[in-house]
Every structure is written in structure tokens, then in C-alpha cells.
Amino acid sequence: MRIGLITPEPGHPLLAETTALLTPEHEVEALDPVTLGDVPLPLPLPLPLPLPLPLADVYLLKSRTPHALGLARYLERRGAPVVNSAAATALCQDRTEMAGLALRAGLPFAATRTVGPLGAWAREARPPAPVVVKSRLSRRGDLVARADGGARLRELARDWPQEPVVVQEYAPNNGWDHKLWAIGDRVFSALRRSELSPGGRGPTHPLAPDELPAGWADLVRRVGSVFALDVYGVDIIDTGGGTPLIVDVNAFPGIRGQSGAPEALAALALSRAAAGRA
């Protein structure tokens, strides 16, 4: 089988370990979506693209940039399977669309309002309770912050005046995020001190499957079905008594330090490649 990696970072631990598992019997090729070779590509991407031929049996989309999404859409039009699809990956970048889909599907997702540029909203906003302010576009280095009143909002607005944001009411919790990840039907989990807690983000502690509250693993799989995702992350907080509240969904996160994750990804890649050939 030929497996393609759409990523500028093929040395990422999850991808590197998965590649090591596959290469004894299969061919793995990394495609940097910005260059596809030695020459930087403009946007929109020039068509046809200078791709290595024949196409791979499956591509793993481990990037969310416009170049990567454009490449994934092009490969899909050529008939190649892409995990996750470009459409599913793009949907998870837009927190407004993400929340709308989750709530329509009946998932326990945090109620989310879209308020536009933070600077304009902060001048008028008078939140009656603590809120969580997030960039509408999910990306590396985006804005995720708690604001307990107008003064904190205006402070954030000075740093992010033009940033389109969404707002969620702050749900009281124990200060720990449950980080859950899925690769196909396999669910992995960890606890991490929340970046919104007084002490800020802390280390990540892996959890065994039997340490999760009852029903949470099935909830994660349901998220995958609703969002048409195969490799994804779900951030959940416990609002009391094991009651879950989903606060974010991510397409193809890093899933670092999870025993069995590279094996699960290798098996998923081969399964999708075989299905594509059939």
C-alpha cells in the first residue's frame, strides 16, 4: 500500500511512529502542502498540481492550513481517500459551525454565541457571569480566555481588537479538562489542568479506559459520527457527577504520549487504503 501524509511536519511523534510501523511492508510519502517539492505554491493552488504519481491509496490530512485543505480537496476530486476529509476538517475550524452542528445533533455542547470582532463587542458587553472568549477560527495560537467582567474583556480586546470571536458561558468545574481522542473506534484519554484555571495549563496525565466516566467513550464515538471524523479530539469538562459538557472538537490532533495510538493510526490507514482499492 502507498500512504500519503499531508503535513509540513512528518517528524511529528504520532506520524513518525506510525510511519515506522508501516514502512517495513508499505510505502509512506510525506507531502508538504505549501511546496509539494522545492517551489512554494501560491493560493489558490494552481491546477493541475505537480503530484507524485500514481496517487497514494490513502492520504492522512495532518494540517489545517488553506494549502493543506486545497490539496486535500484536489485529491478527493481525483478519487483518493483522505482521512479526515477536507470538509470535515474545515468544519472543525469554525467554532460557530461546530457548535451549531453539535447542538442540532443533540450533543451536550456548550451554548455558543458569535459576537463578531472582539474590540467592538467588548465596548458594549456587560456579561452577568464569567464567560469564555474564543477565536471563531480554531488554529494554533488562537484566543481562548476566561473573562469575569468588562475590565477583563477590554484587556483582551486591546490585544485582539479585530479578532472574530465566539462566547460561551463559563461552566463551573473542577479545573481539569478531559482530553479525549479517537482513531477509528479506539478512544484514548488524559486529564490536563485547564488553561482557564487560576494556575493556568498544567501537564497531561494519561487515563486508562476504565477511568473514564460511564458513557463518555460512546459519546466521543458519537461525535465522530456526527462530524464525519475518523481521527479527532474532543475536549470535555465534568460539570458535576460525571455530567459531560463538550467545549471543543478538533480534527486530527497530536495525540501525543498515548500508548497504542500509532498502531491504531497505522491500522486505520491500511483499512481505508484497502477499502479505496476495493
Results as ranks from 00 to 15, higher is better:
L36I: 05
L60D: 14
P40R: 08
L49Y: 05
I6G: 02
S63G: 11
A20I: 02
L22M: 05
H12P: 05
G70C: 02
P48A: 10
T23A: 06
G70I: 01
Y59F: 10
R64T: 15
E29K: 00
L41C: 11
E29Y: 03
R78E: 14
P48K: 09
Y74E: 08
T65V: 07
V28M: 06
P42W: 10
L71H: 00
E17Y: 06
P46L: 08
L21Q: 00
L43F: 13
D32N: 12
L55A: 04
T23H: 02
A16C: 05
L22T: 00
V39S: 10
L15V: 06
V28S: 03
L21M: 02
I6V: 15
L14I: 13
V34Q: 15
H12N: 06
L51H: 05
H67V: 03
L60E: 14
P66C: 10
L61H: 11
D32Q: 04
P8V: 14
P42T: 12
D32T: 11
A16Q: 07
I6L: 15
T18V: 10
L61D: 09
P24G: 01
A68H: 11
P42A: 12
L43C: 13
G70F: 01
P40H: 08
E76K: 05
E27L: 08
P10R: 07
L31T: 02
T7L: 12
G70S: 03
A30W: 09
L60C: 14
L22A: 01
P66N: 13
G11W: 11
V39L: 13
S63T: 10
D38Y: 05
A72T: 00
P10F: 09
E17D: 13
A16N: 07
P10H: 07
H67N: 06
V58I: 09
P8S: 15
V39D: 13
R77S: 07
P44N: 14
L22W: 08
L36M: 06
P50C: 04
V58P: 03
G37C: 01
V28P: 04
L14W: 13
L53K: 07
D32Y: 02
E25V: 12
P42L: 08
L36K: 06
L47C: 08
V58E: 05
R64D: 09
G37E: 03
P44I: 14
H67C: 05
P48H: 10
H67Q: 05
R73Y: 08
D57W: 01
E9Q: 12
P13F: 04
P44V: 14
T65P: 09
I6P: 01
V58Y: 02
L60S: 14
L47F: 11
V28Q: 02
P52R: 08
L55S: 03
P8E: 15
K62R: 15
L22G: 01
G70H: 00
R64M: 14
H67G: 02
V39M: 09
L53G: 04
T19C: 06
G37Y: 01
L60I: 15
L53V: 13
P46H: 07
A20R: 15
L43Y: 13
L71E: 00
D57T: 04
L60M: 12
A20T: 04
T23C: 04
P13D: 07
E25L: 14
L60A: 13
V39N: 09
T35F: 00
L49C: 05
G37T: 11
D32V: 09
L31F: 05
